[in-house]
Amino acid sequence: MRIRHDRERCVGSGACAFTLPDIFDQDEDDGRVLVLVERPGEERRKAIEDVAASCPVFALTIEND
């Protein structure tokens, strides 16, 4: 599993970084999403899918390897 993020779409809601701070953060400079762990373990899939679904601009997608 690989997390893809679209910085152009991101509006910096921080929903991802608030919910899963070990996987997502926000750029100090512009507030947009930073993916800290691009390839998290399979056991995190559900949590990451939930966060991606609650992104207000759907800037996160999960790719299968």
């Binding site: 910096g12 921080g14 970084a17 608030f18 701070p21 926000q26 507030g31």
Partner: peptide, 11 residues
């Protein structure tokens, strides 16, 4: 919005 959001990050 982009001027403001770095100040309101989750961190």
């Amino acid at each position: 919005r982009r001027a403001l959001i770095p100040e309101l990050t989750a961190r």
